[in-house]
Simulated scan of single mutants.
Amino acid sequence: MQKLKRREEQVVTVFGGSGFVGRYVVALLARDGWRIRVAVRDPQKAAFLKACGDVGQVVPLAVDVSDPASVARIVQDSSVVINLIGILLEQGKQRFDLLQARVPGTVAAAAQKAGARTLIQMSAIGADLNSPSRYGRSKAEGEVAARAAFPSAVIIRPSIVFGPEDDFFNRFARMAQVSPFLPLVGGGNTWFQPVYVGDVAEAIRKIVLHPDKYSGEIYELGGPRVMTFRECLELLLREVRLNRLLVGLPFWLARVMSVFMTVLPNPPLTLDQLKMLEKDNVVSDQAKHLEDLGVKPVDPHLILSDYLSRYRDGGRKN
């Protein structure tokens, strides 16, 4: 019988480990003593992750995710493979079809061939093969591809993820600093269940620590509060201590505006994102969730004030 390797001798490969969620995952796993390969496009930009562990414990490596051979080299001898790659906006070669529909299957096939015992695929609430949104369809296609190559893969589907580096509360906080109003797309009636990035990372850590317990499961990750889009912005304005009008923006008008915004290098709203906004983004009643992974979700009120305080007049002092 083969002797089980000690944790510090086992390799965890994290695709997209330098991203918003990835950096928290890498930090937790490094603290637990795993050897970590961070598969990224640009290892130099991911060099900051080396500080998460001892010398040589966290190693950023270049990978071409469109090339199965490159992916296979990265996952060689890995005990755990985690795929966190995802985009909210298509730009250049960064396409939903490649990164969210095809790459999960490539990573899963490589992990299976390498003999990894655990594969974790990050998807999203709203993943649906019949979604009107290409984002939602590509996430669902990625789940199917991952499961086809690695049947025991664990799928996690977060709602909107918030934290110091998020692109949701930070985006609207920056907007509030320069605009007298904030737009409520669709009247602000879409429901969200914001989940703290640290809780998402802890959920992944639990799966890595107990692979047999969670094998083959699907988890939808949401925080303790279900909030409308309007309530999210009202909370934000309280935290940044700014008075701004919340102006309803009907979906039909937002669609027209999104067409003109496509010419911008980083459009604040796309037609595909609008299609996602037309559907609530909350954990379903039948789904397994954070508590099933032994994680008690943090209330947004306890986190937001810490990192949104920089948007107040006078900054963190006030």
Rank of each mutant, 00 (worst) to 15 (best):
A153T: 14
G222L: 02
E217N: 03
E217C: 01
L182T: 10
L209A: 15
V154M: 14
A145F: 10
A201G: 09
A149V: 06
M175G: 00
A201H: 07
G186K: 09
V197S: 05
P224S: 03
P158T: 12
P180G: 10
F168Q: 03
W191I: 09
V226W: 01
R157G: 01
S179Y: 05
A149F: 05
R205S: 11
K206M: 15
C232Y: 00
H210R: 12
V226L: 08
R171C: 02
H210D: 09
G223D: 01
P180R: 09
G186D: 07
G216M: 09
A153E: 05
I207Q: 03
P158Q: 14
E165D: 15
G187R: 11
A148K: 15
L182V: 10
K213Q: 13
H210G: 00
L182I: 09
E217W: 00
F150R: 12
P211A: 07
P151A: 14
R157C: 12
D199R: 13
G163S: 12
T190V: 15
D212T: 13
D167E: 14
A148L: 12
P183W: 11
I218E: 02
A203G: 10
S152D: 15
M227W: 00
G188L: 13
I204R: 05
T190I: 13
G198H: 11
L235A: 08
F192Y: 15
E165W: 09
F162Y: 15
V154N: 13
F169S: 05
F229A: 00
P224G: 03
I155S: 07
P158S: 13
H210P: 00
L184A: 10
I218S: 03
G188P: 11
N189A: 14
R171D: 07
V185C: 10
G223E: 01
V195L: 06
Q193W: 10
Q193D: 07
